[in-house]
């Protein structure tokens, strides 16, 4: 029985891993095609088309692309500002591609940061994101309250000299839960978010509200609970003087007693992780 459960879970994680890899492949492919003059809208369409050509029919959210100081969400006041604009990419500009395709019922949500040519500030931010990935995993394994972990990430950012930019996301979330989505022929979207996924999130929110947890990992009181088993798309976002950088990937939280098993990153073979490994070497 236990083995059957384990193998089922393994297969499920494999599904999530596959779509996350697909999404990062898309990000790398699109990033390689970016050139001066490309607009955010074009970059978003490139992501959409690349994934659609590979069988993606539903989305947790539609692809985003942010260029220049929009990577740090400078002067963002309303959520509509997250949507791609006609801002054009220039040499040296930082950019972020953020997409959340659903593939074969598995959801992913990834963020990919880069710059067109050399950008020392962006490189520095990427280097410094490493400490955040380690901190989040460590504290989740310690079963600290999500709100406290959020504040520790915040403090680390401040110590590093950066501003917390995930604060600008709806509800200021650093992460949110993702889950399997039933494949439907008709899956309309609401403000760029897939209705199926939103439904799942709403159901989680309702359950959570009754049981004292939330699918949104925020700085607020409703996140003052230990990590809830499930898949969390974690997205720490650093900002520094008009340059922003983030990664986003799935953290698997289980109810296992073994700390190693209780939480782990879904996949350690991702562009930003490989980059840090290269730097260390």
């Amino acid at each position: 029985m236990a083995t059957a459960l384990t193998s089922e879970r393994t297969a499920e994680l494999e599904g999530f891993r596959r779509v996350q890899r697909l999404a990062y492949e898309c990000a790398e492919a699109v990033a390689a095609r970016l050139e001066p003059g490309v607009t955010e809208r074009q970059a978003a369409r490139m992501q959409r088309e690349w994934l659609a050509a590979r069988g993606v029919r539903d989305w947790f959210h539609m692809p985003f692309a942010w260029f220049g100081d929009r990577t740090a969400f400078v002067n963002f006041r309303v959520p509509l500002q997250f949507f791609p604009t006609s801002r054009r990419l220039e040499p040296g500009m930082p950019f972020i591609l953020d997409m959340a395709p659903v593939f074969e019922g598995f959801t992913s949500d990834i963020g990919y940061s880069g710059s067109l040519g050399a950008n020392p500030v962006q490189h520095k931010l990427m280097d410094d994101l490493r400490a955040h990935r380690e901190l989040i995993l460590r504290e989740v394994r310690e079963r600290r309250s999500l709100r406290e972990i959020y504040e520790d990430v915040d403090r680390l950012m401040v110590r590093q000299g950066y501003a917390n930019r995930h604060r600008a996301y709806p509800f200021g979330v650093i992460a949110h839960k993702v889950d399997r989505v039933r494949a439907r022929r008709f899956s309309p979207r609401l403000f760029g978010f897939g209705t199926q996924s939103l439904k799942g999130l709403a159901a989680d929110a309702l359950h959570g509200h009754r049981e004292g947890w939330s699918p949104l990992w925020s700085p607020y009181r409703f996140s003052d609970h230990p990590p809830r088993p499930g898949l969390w798309a974690v997205e720490p976002h650093l900002g520094f003087r008009g340059t922003g950088a983030k990664f986003e990937e799935i953290l698997v939280v289980t109810d296992s007693r073994d700390p190693e098993e209780s939480a782990f990153w879904l996949d350690d073979d991702l562009p930003h992780v490989r980059r840090w490994a290269e730097v260390t070497c």
Binding site: K124, Q160, F240
Partner: peptide
Amino acid sequence: EAAARTAELSRLV
């Protein structure tokens, strides 16, 4: 450490 960090990032910007 904090001062050094400020100086480092200042050079960067």
